[in-house]
Simulated assay, not measured.
Amino acid sequence: MAINHRLRILLCLLTFKTGFSAEISVVVQTGNSVQLHIQTRELPEFDDLSWKNDKSEIIVRYTSETKRVRLHSSYKDRVDFNDTTFSLTLKNMQKTDSGLYTARASGESDNNIVTYRVSVIDAVEAPVLTVNSNWLSGNFCTVNFTCRAHELMITSSYQNNRCSPEEEVTLQQNYTLILFCSEETIICNHSNPVSWKEKRINITQLCTETMKTDSFLLWSVGLVPVCILIICIIVFMYCKAQEMQKINSDCNTYDIPDRVQAQTEDETGDNRPNTTYCTVGQYQEQKIPPETEKTIYSVVNKKPNQKPPAISSDDT
């Protein structure tokens, strides 16, 4: 019903009359139906009334005397004819159905009552609205974008709640691309005589996301040097600890065991510092325990235990 209403409006706008006959331009969407009316209240007396296309095919023939309706074989499943108003409805229109359709009354003379020029076109595709760049400048958000559809393209920018420029572009095939902006939205509208589709971008949301991104980048840039400094300090402290550990493992001084020291003092009478041992070379993993391999013990100032020579009576 809504489609038929729009078609009636188009008929009123696009009709031009020349005497009794008129040619009317009608545009219909692919797959939809179109209704063709006689467009006159009074018809002359006729024997037959027919609708035919520009291929000379008689789609329907109505005989007034017998009230008989005959349909063309290729239109039987997609045609409705009203034998009271004599209007013709064509269903499931395809692009190959585009052309002229004429109502003709035959009697004492033949008269073309009305002619329709029917154009079958596809519904429009949804436009593509692409943001090329956006940034914040002071308190204002600037967005550069492109609106594109059906070989049509508009490039514009948004700032201070308006688009510059707001444009409308139309092709000869009646495909129109319109760009306009509101306070919060960019709208790209693609239309033709049978359909329209649009794409929107929420400016408020886009600019808010830009602000969040910029804040994150600034925070990240400030955080990077701090992280590098902390890593450098950790690496320095680790290297220093490794160096000290290596020094401590290379040379260690210990007192000899108490048992050995006591024996040495009894035999030599020397109670000076006793024994020192150091790690020799880098420890290499072997089957014997590391503790046995890493150290060498030595006893310092230990003399052989000898008894003094006996004094004979002859020496005395």
Results as ranks from 00 to 15, higher is better:
Ser109Phe: 13
Ser106Met: 03
Ser106Arg: 08
Ser109Lys: 11
Gly99Thr: 02
Asn111Val: 15
Gln94Gly: 15
Thr102Glu: 10
Gln94Tyr: 09
Val118Thr: 14
Tyr116Leu: 07
Ile121Ser: 03
Val114Cys: 01
Val124Cys: 08
Ala123Gln: 09
Ser119Gly: 06
Met93Gly: 04
Asp122Thr: 08
Val120Lys: 03
Met93Asn: 06
Ala103Asp: 02
Leu100Phe: 05
Ser98Val: 09
Ala103Gly: 08
Ser109Thr: 14
Asn111Glu: 10
Glu108Ile: 09
Gly107Ile: 06
Lys95Val: 11
Ser98Thr: 12
Asn111His: 13
Asp110Gly: 09
Ser109Ala: 14
Asp97Asn: 08
Tyr116Arg: 08
Thr102Gln: 13
Ala123Pro: 06
Asp122Glu: 12
Leu100His: 01
Lys95Trp: 03
Leu100Tyr: 04
Ser109Trp: 06
Tyr116Cys: 09
Ser98Trp: 12
Arg104Asn: 09
Arg104Ala: 12
Tyr116Met: 01
Ala105Arg: 07
Thr115Pro: 04
Glu108Cys: 08
Ile121Gln: 07
Tyr101Trp: 07
Thr96Phe: 08
Ser109Gln: 12
Asp110Gln: 06
Leu100Cys: 02
Gln94Glu: 14
Asp122Ala: 02
Leu100Val: 00
Gly99Leu: 00
Ser98His: 09
Tyr116Gly: 03
Ser119Thr: 15
Met93Lys: 00
Ser109Cys: 12
Val118Ile: 14
Asp122Trp: 04
Thr102Arg: 00
Leu100Pro: 00
Val114Lys: 10
Ser119Val: 15
Ala105Asn: 05
Leu100Ala: 11
Ser109Leu: 12
Thr102Cys: 01
Ser119Asp: 15
Asp110Phe: 03
Met93Leu: 15
Ser98Ala: 11
Ser106Tyr: 03
Ala103Thr: 05
Leu100Ser: 01
Thr96Pro: 00
Thr115Phe: 02
Asp122Tyr: 04
Tyr101Val: 07
Val124Glu: 01
Thr96Asn: 07
Leu100Lys: 10
Ser106Leu: 04
Ala123Glu: 10
Ser98Asn: 07
Lys95His: 07
Lys95Arg: 13
Thr96Gln: 05
Thr102Val: 10
Gly107Tyr: 04
Ser106Trp: 00
Ala103His: 08
Ala105Trp: 00
Glu108Arg: 13
Val118Cys: 11
Gln94Asn: 13
Asn112Gln: 05
Tyr101Ser: 05
Arg117Tyr: 13
Val118Ala: 14
Thr96Ser: 10
Ser106Asn: 07
Ser119Tyr: 15
Ile113Thr: 08
Lys95Ala: 08
Asn112Arg: 04
Ala105Glu: 00
Glu108Gly: 14
Leu100Gln: 07
Ser119Glu: 15
Thr96Asp: 00
Asp110Trp: 06
